[in-house]
Design a protein around this nucleic acid. Structure first.
Lengths: 232, 232
DNA sequence: TGTAAACTACAAACGGCGTTCGCAGTTCAG
DNA sequence: CTGAACTGCGAACGCCGTTTGTAGTTTACA
């Protein structure tokens, strides 16, 4: 909506994004900390105690300084979250060589992305917020395009497909994190006949094998090797 | 993970969920406000100014009272968000009669859900948080099961399918809300050859017709009318 | 009917948050 | 050498969700 604030290298207010602003000037004492150290401490904190525990004061305490001092290195907590995200996206490297089927290649990338979410559960909470795309995220995106190179279709379709794959990955990551986190106790189940019918059935024999892969395979073939009869 | 806190009618600490706790007792003056009025004010605020504007103080001001007074009707802000969510889910009623193909029925429901997200953009931010399932959400779920009744497969698969549909809906809602909200300015694009190649191509002739529907159709058939050769 | 318990409203306060500001000390450009 | 640009730091600001204390009101029950 509105005038598209497009967080980029230089927004209207003259402020620079975290990706283009230099870490420090040439004068003054050598800083006691660094952007990297702060990001590292924040990630460690998020991995260990979850995203809500990542407060400026907590990070500063972990680094042995005050909360206000962090603003010598960052301009806001949002910038820090962007840096954290891009840094862990870097863990997706090294990217495998483009060999074999492009579909298998995309599935491999998706599985790696899912593993990344397992390593850093806070990624789910952080990725839903409009963020500035960092260099590692761009590299990942670029690599997806590389794998999709043999596919003959419009770039728009590829963009859509990549976005959908990322979305489905976060979907699975979210459902894995929220597994069994609620129940129906206390509700008047009598009002929901199909629900009680479903629960009165014998439990499923076993979870279907690799719902993740089947979903993505269906999605990608559906989006990229489209039925030519409905070319719009 | 851990001991599954299962937010339900009565959690371990003896506190009752917002769905089972009575709104008021029998003694004392008649309350000046009501749970419904608070929820309504909160939804109006969220629709107009976004979820961050929904602070206890703002709601209280809108109702002409103090922030602390709201705790006579709610036990926490999280409870309020649960109530808000369930209330707008009620807007999905009335549910259409189960006629025609189940796939078409599910697609209709999904489209309605997407429209709901368009009406209440804050739903995206609120639904990613582990929440207590309210009666309207249960009714919606029950209705999905009703539509899927003619499908002959395990209930587990139906649950998975419903969850995936909801997830894909929120995916599309999110991408619609974030459309064009970032750019690559300031980045050294030379390091991303496939990205620049993609952008140097002529723009797509036109967006593919109804990516939403095609995605869901592929997903549902893939998940529910599974290939019998790989029955697990 | 009298009284105590249960309920109401409300303002003030608590602790935490992200962030800003002023101050004192340090380093380097001109 | 001087002054500008930087550094760390602690106090403060204005928000937030929530708790608490006080005072007034209504109902249940002896």
């Amino acid at each position: 909506m509105s005038d598209a604030p497009t967080r980029s290298g230089d927004d209207g207010s003259g402020r620079q994004s975290i990706w283009t602003r230099p870490e420090r000037g040439s004068r003054g004492p050598v800083p006691a900390h660094s952007r990297d150290a702060i990001v590292e401490a924040a990630i460690a904190l998020a991995d260990a105690e979850g995203l809500p525990a990542v407060s400026m004061r907590a990070i500063a305490t972990a680094l042995g300084t005050g909360a206000g001092s962090l603003y010598r290195y960052l301009s806001s907590r949002d910038d820090l979250l962007d840096l954290m995200t891009d840094r862990v996206v870097g863990e997706l490297r090294p990217y495998p060589p483009a060999e074999g089927d492009w579909l298998d290649g995309m599935l491999l990338l998706a599985r790696r992305q899912l593993a990344l979410h397992r390593r850093h559960p806070w990624l789910i909470e952080v990725s839903h917020r409009p963020s500035a795309v960092g260099p590692e995220s761009l590299a990942w995106f670029d690599n997806c395009l590389r794998i999709l190179e043999p596919v003959a279709c419009a770039v728009t379709a590829k963009f859509e497909a990549i976005a959908m794959v990322t979305g489905v990955v976060s979907l699975f990551a979210r459902s894995a994190a929220a597994a069994g986190s609620f129940s129906f106790a206390g509700a008047d189940l009598a009002a929901y006949p199909h629900l009680v019918a479903a629960f009165s059935q014998p439990p499923a024999p076993a979870p279907r094998a690799d719902l993740f892969e089947r979903t993505l395979r269906g999605l990608l073939t559906g989006l990229l090797v489209a039925d030519p009869t409905e070319a719009g």
